[in-house]
Design a binder for these strands. Structure first.
Lengths: 191, 191
DNA sequence: CGGAATCTTGAAAGTGTTCAAATCAAGTGG
DNA sequence: CCACTTGATTTGAACACTTTCAAGATTCCG
């Protein structure tokens, strides 16, 4: 059930059998229906979610009730509001499944105990966050370098299947564009 | 000399005297002149830089020779191209001092050895990167929510002294605007 | 003082948004 | 399985924001 998670971890650190077993025993599994929520703004984010299948979206709600998607969570990604998680404070984000999804859940309540029993997990997460941080800096760089249209095309080129998988208005939100504009871009392409 | 670095680390983890001493003994100190480079694109980023004083900027060079600033490094910040650092690959970034600066340097060559001698440093960096990742996601969210003008004002409000400290064209680059447009914004404000 | 770098100003052009209406698609209940 | 309702996408016109380019003013530094 947690094969993918264990494989992911073992790309970064080594685990022995006891550690593997311990880890599996403390993770929770959850199947989330389409449009099901794993986190709602105002609540404390008390878990880290590792996506096993499906797709999550993490978004914030702006003044005008508009949703701004910060990132998508595809299989192999951890999704969490780290600030809320570590400081036990209400989150500004919502995390919702865009399709039926399965997640492995690591609860805040047991994190420290788990880390003390498997210290190399600190390293695992250090490497994961280092990577994610790096990726998001790259993303920031690209955003400013490219026009909205270029952003769309580059994203569509990098994730051709994914572009079909989520509704356009979510893509628009994620890319910082309006659905109308994406519509125009796509019409152009056809020509 | 490394007081600020030690204090910073001890906000996240505890160090004993031996560890403190070891740490201090392996760090390198460097004073960088204004416009001095700590990293040039094409070179491997073989160090992490902890800013003790002054200010660094990390940027990428776009097609048209234009510099896109990804982030500034003020005292208390670590600056590094993590991907280049961990994989020993040439970096796309440049890191340059915008004013006379002092940095504490942790070299890639000794990182693993240091981590094995002070395992809690993994935790320190896990927390640092988690925070930085979080901050950069917040930044991505804000970028898309706000207009360029709003971005400028919010930044000026949050870092009133800093806005005076770096040339406007760098601010413009960091905020994803043109220097001309910042000029217009500032003129408006005066009215 | 002189030269280079930085900042300002204004006009013209581009890029993307807003709004409203029309079309298309999908899910529900009868 | 159809009719209905709701949600999602498209289209077009008018508008807003930001950039580009070129020129002039200012500041900084040796």
């Amino acid at each position: 059930m947690y094969e993918d998670l264990l494989n992911h971890i073992e790309k970064y650190i080594r685990l022995n059998d006891a550690e593997r077993q311990l880890l599996v025993s403390v993770m929770r599994y959850e199947k989330v229906p389409k449009k099901g929520f794993l986190l709602k703004s105002g609540k404390v984010c008390s878990s880290r979610f590792f996506v096993l299948s499906g797709c999550l979206r993490q978004y914030i709600i702006k003044e005008n009730e508009v949703e701004q998607i910060i990132q998508f969570g595809l299989p192999g990604w951890w999704i969490c509001d780290h600030h809320s998680f570590e400081n036990n404070q209400p989150s500004e984000y919502c995390v919702q499944a865009t399709e039926v999804s399965e997640v492995a859940i690591l609860d805040a309540a047991i994190q420290e105990d788990l880390f003390s029993k498997i210290p190399s997990l600190e390293r695992y997460f250090r490497l994961i966050f280092q990577r994610a941080y790096d990726a998001s800096l790259t993303r920031i760089g690209l955003e400013y370098c490219m026009s909205g249209e270029e952003r769309y095309h580059q994203f569509a080129k990098n994730f051709p299947d994914f572009v079909q998988r989520v509704p356009q208005y979510m893509l628009a939100s994620f890319l910082g564009l309006t659905p109308e504009f994406i519509s125009i871009i796509r019409a152009k392409k056809g020509k």
